[in-house]
């Protein structure tokens, strides 16, 4: 006889069925046959993730406003901000690409940070979830592969090597902020445990 479906967890990759339970501290629950990580909680992850989300928002705002890169050669100079970079595709249909790049490196990382704050703040404060928290979390998870801040920063490295022997380069504060942003986004993804968030949304909604 199977237990209540609410106590089960199915591996999203291979559909194997398990009885879900909270792993002991420092342990992870892994699917036995396909080795997908199912549950990987971290102590006090909620508060840390909220702090990292706030940091993301501040860094995005800063990276947009401060100077990003400057080059100069033979008396000519040029500044490029992050927005200039995202909007570099100006001719005809290439403008679509400007929109896409802006979304991938600025809008989607910031949106995910906002959604995460919306979902986790009431959970951490032991309140009942705000309206639409489940949908917000689902959207945030769906957006994850489209958040490409870390790829952009590797792109920076490649572009800078290409330019380095052509002209003099100066790094603005936005450049360093973006580097930190990359680390923050990656660490936040490492700490986020989907099962724990869903379980806490369920628990808070029930009380």
């Amino acid at each position: 006889m199977l237990p209540d479906p609410a106590e089960l967890i199915a591996c999203p990759t291979c559909d194997a069925l398990y009885r879900a339970r909270q792993p002991a501290a420092g342990e992870r629950a892994v699917c036995e046959r396909c080795h997908t990580v199912l549950i990987a909680p971290r102590a006090r992850a909620g508060m840390s993730i909220i702090m990292l989300s706030l940091a993301t928002l501040i860094l995005v705002a800063g990276a947009i406003n401060f100077p990003f890169l400057r080059i100069s050669r033979a008396g000519f100079g040029n500044d490029a901000s992050i927005l200039d970079t995202a909007l570099a595709f100006t001719e005809g249909p290439l403008q679509l690409l400007s929109l896409a790049v802006l979304a991938l490196i600025v809008l989607i990382p910031a949106t995910r940070a906002l959604l995460t704050l919306y979902v986790l703040t009431p959970v951490v404060m032991d309140r009942s979830p705000w309206r639409g928290a489940a949908q917000a979390f689902r959207l945030s998870e769906a957006l994850r592969p489209w958040s490409m801040a870390e790829i952009f920063s590797i792109g920076c490295a490649v572009a800078l090597v290409k330019v380095a022997d052509l002209a003099n380069l100066t790094f603005g504060p936005a450049f360093w902020m973006f580097c930190v942003l990359t680390v923050v986004v990656v660490v936040q993804d490492q700490w986020m445990d989907r099962w724990s968030v869903w379980a806490s949304l369920d628990r808070e909604a029930a009380t």
Partner: peptide, 26 residues
Amino acid sequence: WSMIDVFVVAILSALVQLNVVASVNP
């Protein structure tokens, strides 16, 4: 990660705009 080349083009095009000396466009 394949998107990296698009980002490189974006950075180069935004940055390398040195009037007559050199300019890069996508």
